[in-house]
Design a protein around this nucleic acid. Structure first.
Lengths: 215, 215
DNA sequence: ACCTGAACACCGTTCAAGT
DNA sequence: ACCTGAACACCGTTCAAGT
C-alpha cells in the first residue's frame, strides 16, 4: 500500500512527517518522468534523486533498491487501472453482453491511451521480480469484476463462465499491448479497437448457451 | 543478418575464420543460457563471456555493446518464428477460413510453447533500442503471409482485408503474450488456446461478406 | 526525524600487449 | 587474425556526519 499523500509536492521545507510525504511524492513523480523521458535503461538512481531534488541517501530511506521504484510506479498504475475497469464492470450489471463487452474494451483502451508515453514506458519497465505478482493481483481483481458482471447478463449464460471470461480478458489485454508494441498509427489503432469489440461480441454469441445454462 | 555457421560450436582451437565462427556461436548460446538462468537484469558481459569461454575483449570484437547481445538473440528467434508462420500460411492457401485460423493460432502457439523459458526470457528482454524495428519487421512478414492466405479463402471475402488481418494478428500475438505474462497453468492455457480459435472463427464469420466482396 | 554526499563494490567498455 | 585482461568511467548502495 503506497503513500496516499497529495499529488502536488507540498511547499518544501514544511517540517516533520509532512516533509517526508512531500519527498516521497517527489521521488515518485521523478521516477515516472525519467522513465518516460529516458527509458528504463537510463533510469539511474542519481538521475531520479536529482530530478526529485533530494540526495541519493534520502531516496534509499524510502525505496530500498532501484527495483522498488519500478515496483511502486507499477503498483499505483495498475491499481488505478483496476479501479476504473471495476467501475465500468459494475455499471454494466444486467446489461446485454454486447454492451458489457463494449464498455470493458472501451474503458481499458481509454485508460491505456490517456497517457500513452506512460503506458509505453511501463510496458517496457516490466523487469521481473515481484512485478509478476503485481500483474497477477491486477488480473485477479479484473477477473472477479468482469465474471460477476457477465453472470448478470439477461441475454446469455455460459457453460464455462470462468474460461470464457479468462479468454476475453487475455485477448483484450494482449491486443492492446500488441497495438502499443507495434506502435500502430492512431487510425489503424482505432480500427483495431472497433474490430476487437466486434470480435468479442461474435465470440460471446458463439459460445453462449441461450437464456438457461447447460453443462 | 547474423552468422549462419553450424549451431554446435566446432571443436575449439580450429584456426582462422572457423575459430571466429565458433566463438560467435558460443557467445550466442551463452547469452540465451544466462538470459534464461539469471534473467535480463543479471545478464552481465562478464558472465556471458565466462560462460562462453572467452574473454570480454573477444566478445566486444563481435558485439559492440551489451544491447547487441539481446538484439542478436531476438533477431534469430523472431526470424525463425516468422518462417514457421509463413510456412503454415502458405500451406493453407485455398483452405476454408476456419482451417486457416486454426493453423495459424496453433502454429504460433506451438512455436512459443516449444521452449517456454526462452520465450519468457525474450518477452522480458525487450529493452527498447531498435528492438522495436525487429518487431516491426517480424510483424510485416507475418502480415504479408497471412493476408495473402486470407485472400485465397474460397468461403469468404472481406471488405477490409487489411484491417481484419491486422486485428486477427494483434489479437493472437497479444493473447499468447498475456498467457505467458500471467503464467497460466497448462490446463487453463490450453483452454484459452482453444477458445482463441473459436473467437477468431466467430469474428471472421461475423465480418465476412459472403462469396463476393463488398465495399 | 530527516537529510547529505563521500566512499566502496561492481559492471560496461576500451586498448595495449600477446599468439 | 584473433584473443587476453588490466584499466577507467560510471552506477547502485551504504553509512558516518550533519541539521
Amino acid at each position: 500500500m503506497p503513500s496516499n499523500a497529495p499529488m502536488h509536492l507540498t511547499p518544501r521545507k514544511r517540517p516533520r512527517q509532512a516533509r517526508a510525504a512531500a519527498t516521497v511524492d517527489a521521488i515518485f513523480e521523478a521516477t515516472i518522468q525519467v522513465l518516460v523521458a529516458d527509458g528504463p535503461d537510463r533510469l539511474t538512481t542519481t538521475r531520479v534523486a536529482e530530478r526529485a531534488g533530494v540526495s541519493v541517501g534520502t531516496m534509499y530511506q524510502y525505496f530500498p533498491h532501484k527495483q522498488a521504484l519500478f515496483y511502486a510506479v507499477n503498483e499505483r498504475y495498475l491499481s488505478a487501472l483496476a479501479e476504473r475497469v471495476e467501475g465500468a464492470a459494475r455499471a454494466q450489471h444486467g446489461a446485454p453482453v454486447s454492451e458489457m463487452v463494449k464498455a470493458i474494451v472501451t474503458t481499458y483502451w481509454t485508460v491505456k491511451t490517456e497517457r500513452p508515453e506512460v503506458t509505453r514506458a511501463l510496458y517496457r519497465s516490466v523487469v521481473e521480480l515481484d512485478n509478476e505478482s503485481l500483474i497477477e493481483a491486477f488480473a485477479q481483481r479484473v477477473d472477479t469484476a468482469t465474471a460477476a458482471m457477465l453472470a448478470t447478463a439477461p441475454d446469455a449464460a455460459f457453460a464455462d463462465l470462468r474460461t470464457v471470461n479468462l479468454t476475453l480478458l487475455t485477448t483484450i489485454f494482449g491486443a492492446v499491448r500488441s497495438v502499443f508494441e507495434r506502435d500502430l498509427p492512431p487510425l489503424e489503432a482505432h480500427a483495431v479497437q472497433h474490430q476487437l469489440i466486434l470480435m468479442c461480441v461474435a465470440y460471446l454469441a458463439a459460445v453462449k448457451s441461450a437464456p438457461r445454462k447447460a453443462s
